[in-house]
């Protein structure tokens, strides 16, 4: 998939207007569809599963869509991963937690009216949705842990134009922090009422949802990236992202992810 993205990105030509141009919409937006992948290092400490910190390195696919002009910036991004987290404490017992996770972020930012010669500063909001399914067989009937969070918060982005290998490129850093979230975590002892034929796990899952602010749901999403423009108007993005989440119900779950990724951004 990566190789295909490279070939398409390099081969597909955007229509030039200027050196810094590309295909623009009628409203003067530049649009990019990004496809890529990254290496992820995930760290998890979930009191519903274990007091021990689990971790693993793996890969994950990423999808993004960006629309930008002089005043606004919007980005939709999606990533998903599936891996077996483990730890080294008493590893003869081969403990593991199978985890599937998907995160969607939507950012909308407006350029700040600041007199900054070298930096483009934008601020706005971010809407996120995340879902995780964890299965820890060592927990027997309490093995399954589902959680989700839908959150709304603030986001800021700093961009600096740089010259890299003779091309105009962009160094960016953005930070997002949710302020309000609706989330759900399992019941006490991760109970699932399997002995009841009428029981619907999905119903339990949503009936256990609650809404709260920073005390219940805390997330920091920090991302540094280099966008390198190709001759044909497309771009390549190299980025490092740190995403840290803490969810608190009657027990706490911590999750952090370090992602090093490369995305090929097709201007259309």
């Amino acid at each position: 998939m990566l190789l295909l993205s490279v070939l398409i990105s390099c081969g597909v030509h955007a229509q030039y207007t200027e050196d810094d141009g590309g295909i623009e919409t009628k409203n003067g937006h530049l649009r990019y569809l990004g496809l890529g992948a990254g290496a992820t290092y995930q760290v998890m400490n979930d009191e519903a599963i274990s007091p021990i910190i689990y971790s693993r390195v793996s890969a994950l696919p990423m999808l993004t869509h960006i629309k930008v002009n002089q005043t606004s910036y919007s980005e939709f991004s999606l990533r998903a991963s599936s891996l077996k987290l483990t730890h080294n404490v008493n590893k003869q017992l081969q403990p593991f937690v199978k985890t599937q996770r998907a995160i969607m972020d939507y950012r909308f930012l407006i350029r700040m009216p600041l007199e900054m010669r070298y930096f483009d500063i934008r601020a706005g909001g971010m809407l996120s949705a995340s879902f995780a399914s964890k299965n820890a067989p060592l927990l027997q009937d309490a093995a399954q842990v589902y959680e989700y969070a839908v959150s709304l918060g603030l986001c800021g982005k700093v961009t600096k134009e740089v010259t890299f290998a003779g091309k105009t490129s962009f160094l960016t850093w953005d930070l997002a922090i949710p302020l309000l979230a609706n989330m759900s975590r399992p019941y006490y002892l991760n109970r699932q009422e399997l002995a009841d034929p009428e029981n619907k796990i999905i119903g339990d899952f949503f009936s256990n949802a609650s809404t709260g602010s920073i005390g219940k749901y805390w997330r920091i999403n920090s991302r540094a990236a280099l966008l390198f423009r190709l001759d044909n108007g497309n771009m390549v993005q190299f980025s490092y992202q740190w995403d840290y989440t803490r969810m608190k119900t009657f027990n706490k779950a911590y999750f952090a992810e370090h992602i090093v990724s490369i995305l090929f951004m097709f201007n259309y």
């Binding site: 404490v89 008493n90 590893k91 820890a136 927990l139 027997q140 309490a142 002892l189």
Partner: peptide, 18 residues
Amino acid sequence: MVVGAELVNGWQITFPGS
């Protein structure tokens, strides 16, 4: 419902949770 738990040293226990 038989519930499992992992202790701080990695030992695993089970007990009835319902």
